[in-house]
């Protein structure tokens, strides 16, 4: 009962931003094809909109904790139920967005030179006969896992912030930045052995080997989704109201 209500609430909470997002996403290629918008050289090209969707759902994840937690608490919803509600919500939104994006990809590749992020990476394996459909299906599934992961990651980040004190917040913000901008490049460029490991891991994680395999990256996405989901639940389990 409460679970159903909290899912409905969380969905309605994101509905408006979803509508705005897709209004913009659909208007860009429309405006470019009709000549209202042009990019420099004149040969308009839209690419990899999945990344825009992923970032959008990351922001949804970021905004799905604090206010919803307070509202759930006002309405006697346990943290457990709120968490389950978020899982269902984010999977639903990811699913809907993956479907819309698949349609989007299909539609606009007919109108303009359009390439989805998925086909840029894995497109070469779909050059056979049954290609259009299985490419569409592969892309849909791939973006679903990608979006779910980004949404969950956003939720995890906001929970880390909610549970941390000021000092922890600084540490949490600075450490990953230092790691990405200093430690990682240092390891990658100075220590060749490490850089090789990183490259190999990336190839394995995203199925970028000789035989391109999108399912390998879907597996990686879901693995990280589960890790962030467990992390979020642990952070949320005993969260007090602030």
């Amino acid at each position: 009962m409460k679970l159903q209500s909290i899912i409905r609430y969380q969905l309605s909470d994101s509905k408006k931003s979803l509508l705005i997002f897709y209004a913009i996403m659909f208007s860009i290629p429309l405006l470019t094809t009709t000549g209202f918008l042009s990019f420099g050289s004149g040969s308009a090209e839209v690419r990899g909109t999945e990344m825009a969707s992923a970032i959008f759902i990351f922001v949804i994840g970021l905004n799905s904790f604090r206010a919803n937690f307070l509202f759930s608490q006002a309405n006697g919803v346990s943290r457990k139920t709120q968490f389950k509600g978020f899982l269902v919500t984010i999977l639903l939104i990811s699913g809907v967005m993956a479907i819309i994006d698949a349609i989007y990809t299909h539609l606009f590749s007919l109108l303009v030179p359009y390439m989805s992020f998925f086909s840029m990476i894995y497109g070469s394996i779909y050059l056979t006969d049954s290609a259009p459909l299985s490419a569409l299906f592969g892309g849909l599934l791939w973006s679903f896992f990608l979006y779910a992961l980004y949404g969950m990651f956003g939720y995890f980040v906001t929970l880390v912030y909610y549970r941390s004190g000021l000092i922890m917040k600084l540490v949490v913000s600075i450490v990953p930045a230092i790691f990405i901008f200093f430690v990682l490049p240092y390891l990658a460029f100075v220590n060749l052995a490490v850089s090789r490991v990183i490259v190999n891991l990336t190839v394995l994680a995203f199925g970028l080997g000789v035989n391109l395999n999108p399912y390998q990256s879907m597996f990686t996405f879901s693995l990280f989704f589960i890790i962030f989901a467990i992390g979020s639940y642990l952070l949320m389990r005993r969260a007090p109201i602030k």
Partner: peptide, 19 residues
């Protein structure tokens, strides 16, 4: 963490919990 017990209680809080 008990939905059933919590659904029997309503609490007016000093802080605003509504969006």
């Amino acid at each position: 963490e008990n939905d059933q017990a919590l659904s029997q209680i309503y609490c007016i809080a000093e802080t605003n919990l509504y969006p």
